[in-house]
Design a protein around this nucleic acid. Sequence first.
DNA 1: CAGTCCCC
DNA 2: CTGA
Length: 214
Amino acid sequence: MADTLDLFGQSGPEALSDGAVLMRGFAVSETDALITGIESVATQAPFRRLMTPGGKPMSAAMTNCGAAGWVSDRRGYRYEACDPQTGRPWPEMSDGFRDLAVEAARLAGFEDFTPDACLINLYEPGARMSLHQDRDETDLSQPIVSVSLGLEAVFLWGGMARTDPTQKIILRHGDVVVFGGASRLRFHGIAPLKPGRCPGIGARRYNLTFRRAI
DNA sequence: CAGTCCCC
DNA sequence: CTGA
């Protein structure tokens, strides 16, 4: 069974912790549509490096699609219906994006995922994301679905306290991580991206994170 | 008060 | 520092 799936670059869901599941290669067959979708979003809402509340630019660039988009500036973190840079609503979340996220959540044991936000992070070599929690969403009973595309990255999977030890997990093109339940508020991050190049995508990693924000 | 997704 |  596992061998058959492995022929297609996939394997069964793998538990990272209580409520957190890694599905290797789950999104590989959707690569072309996902990349096209990201490029379409980026033409309407360009990637930009947000400021942290402390006033420093993040190293990963971000954009969003869906009814709500995550933003950060000197006033804090929040979700906004419109892109502050253009004043227009964030681009629609396509059915293809939504269906992929809902199906991944379902396979991970979360039946009623209704995402309204997709944050798209663009990492270039050297970019990172320090340990943080996703806690700006209203309904913490809904999971986060994270899709990795392009260059591989070292995912830091921590605990409920910032100082808890972290597990290092290599996330490759097409891998999907779902975390919810007891793991919904775990600290997590991304180690500085190593240089490299991915066919068709280049020296970049995209990360799509689907959330129920409002 | 709590939060602090930054330091390439 | 900001915003609940």
